[in-house]
């Protein structure tokens, strides 16, 4: 997140290198499924990297895309939105609504040259502690490969 000076285009910033770059991933977890899934991962002592920072929301259907944009603009390297599987939403259909909003957002950011994989929408049920840990592992790996969020290279955020 530290930007000392505006780097020239294509210049490799020191923390760009895979390996010593530790990405920061923000996750919006639905209270009923994914947050409980994350709890289960904890209860089952499934280790995953500490790069992931969760925010509990009531439902993925309550995740305003503005939150995701804000997180990315503030310098998050990836954002996860995770909720109940289709059909299992605690609030009947929140996850379907989220899917639309996230699809729109992804399309926009894709057009802005931001890798589509920086935003992930995942269905993780409360019993899928393993899936939760796997998802985080995978995201960290993938984000490391993609490198830091290019927005961070810009001054304004």
């Amino acid at each position: 997140m530290v930007t000392e000076a505006q780097p020239k285009e294509n210049e490799v910033v020191s923390d760009d290198k895979e390996g010593d770059f530790e990405p920061k991933i923000i996750g919006f977890l639905c209270n009923w499924c994914s947050y409980t899934g994350a709890d289960l991962a904890g209860v089952s002592r499934l280790q995953y990297p500490p790069n992931f920072i969760p925010i509990r929301v009531m439902c993925t259907g309550a995740v305003d895309p503005v939150y995701v944009i804000k997180a990315l603009l503030e310098g998050a390297d990836s954002v996860l939105v995770a909720g109940c599987h289709p059909g299992d939403c605690h609030y009947l259909s929140g996850n379907f609504k989220a899917r639309r909003r996230i699809a729109i957002l992804k399309k926009l950011l894709e057009n802005l040259g931001l890798e589509e994989r920086r935003i992930r929408l995942e269905w993780i049920s409360a019993s899928e502690g393993q899936k939760f840990a796997d998802t985080v592992n995978e995201m960290v790996k993938e984000t490391k490969k993609m490198g830091p969020n290019p927005i961070k290279k810009e001054w304004d955020i």
Partner: peptide, 12 residues
């Protein structure tokens, strides 16, 4: 929004 945006701000 205010609460969650404040939290996001702090997390990164």
């Amino acid at each position: 929004n205010k609460e969650i945006l404040a939290q996001i701000d702090e997390l990164i």
